[in-house]
């Protein structure tokens, strides 16, 4: 925090990123890629930003976040198939279901820290994944929940159809803009700064009067809810919901995206990480089925040599030591 102590709501970097994304449908096919990849990148960028609220901004090593993404996907699909096929209602259901999942987990783990916190998030992630596979009657089990429609955007005066990937892309971009703006405000709010204080020194935070576990619970619920929103968009994008996104595997992907991108040092790192991850999957994946090996090696190299991630190298870090600091 520099002198002046306030942070602008809109920053040049933020607007540049939004505008850059907005141009993607214009050129993505010209470079040999495809429109749906843009949709996927934006969904995972939203998910990674939501995840980093917990990992980077609060220092809570959750390794079971896939559960919340998956709960959002099922929440969206089930609300649409069984309740009301309205886009806003179903996205709301995705957020509510995932937040409820987050609240259950938070109730059990918010008094923990470090490795115990991690282990419990993994355990809960596995429980949700297992339930999704076994509840065949509700979720379709491993066959998945199929025939989820891309519902139209109803705005009162006008209605937009999302069946085409380009229109879906712009809708997801709108959600991404809203989520990134919200999270940007959050990390600079009293709530966000208190989380950062707890991340650095939980003990001292308690001794200056903070109910640490409440903050840890609140941020997990929030992050789960926004991850669920991304999950709802994903269910809509692929017109189905499967348990695999809830697996430990997929929970690991989001950790990798966030760390590779530099989520520990820059706000936008997770976005960069999602782009690099999905591009690596498609570009390296075109040459070898073992793309994950190469990405895994990149991940290991970064963790060892550049723990601040790609974002720490290419994006301007959120805060540098001021001049004169040793």
């Amino acid at each position: 925090m520099r002198t002046g102590h306030t942070v602008p709501t809109l920053t040049p970097a933020m607007i540049a990123i939004w505008v850059a994304f907005a141009t993607v449908p214009l050129w993505i096919e010209k470079v040999g890629l495809y429109q749906y990849l843009g949709v996927e990148i934006l969904i995972f960028a939203t998910y990674a930003l939501a995840y980093n609220l917990v990992l980077g901004h609060s220092g809570l090593p959750s390794f079971g976040h896939g559960a919340f993404f998956g709960l959002g996907a099922y929440g969206f699909g089930l609300a649409q198939l069984n309740l009301v096929p309205d886009l806003w209602f179903c996205l709301g259901a995705a957020v509510v279901v995932a937040s409820a999942g987050g609240a259950i987990v938070a109730a059990f783990i918010s008094h923990r820290r470090g490795i115990y916190y991690s282990l419990l998030t993994i355990a809960f992630g596995q429980v949700f994944w297992f339930i999704a596979i076994k509840s065949h009657a509700i979720t379709g089990g491993e066959d998945g929940l199929l025939k989820i429609a891309r519902l139209p955007v109803r705005l009162g005066v006008a209605t937009f159809d999302l069946t085409h990937n380009i229109s879906l892309f712009y809708f997801v971009l709108a959600v991404f803009v809203a989520v990134s703006l919200l999270l940007w405000r959050l990390v600079h709010s009293p709530f966000g700064r208190i989380l950062k204080a707890i991340k650095q020194n939980e003990t001292r935070a308690r001794f200056v009067g903070y109910d640490v576990w409440r903050y840890k619970a609140a941020v997990l619920v929030l992050s789960a809810g926004l991850s669920g929103l991304a999950g709802g968009l994903f269910a809509m994008a692929q017109s189905s919901a499967f348990p695999d996104v809830m697996s430990l595997h997929y929970s690991g992907y989001i950790v990798m995206m966030t760390l590779v991108g530099g989520g520990l040092v820059t706000f936008w790192g997770p976005v960069l990480g999602a782009i690099v991850f999905l591009l690596a999957r498609d570009v390296i994946g075109a040459f070898t089925t073992g793309w994950m090996l190469w990405f895994g090696l990149l991940f290991v190299a970064l963790v060892i040599y550049k723990p601040e991630g790609l974002g720490g190298m290419f994006l301007r870090p959120a805060r540098r030591k001021p001049a004169g600091a040793k």
């Binding site: 925090m1 102590h5 306030t6 942070v7 919200l182 405000r185 959050l186 600079h188 709010s189 009293p190 709530f191 966000g192 700064r193 208190i194 204080a197 200056v208 009067g209 903070y210 903050y215 929030l222």
Partner: peptide, 20 residues
């Protein structure tokens, strides 16, 4: 600033400026 009671009282504020 984080230890001031004013900051603590605004702990549920997730959109306002922390030190505005």
């Amino acid at each position: 600033a984080i230890a001031l009671p004013q900051t603590r009282r605004r702990g549920a504020d997730a959109v306002g400026q922390a030190y505005g």
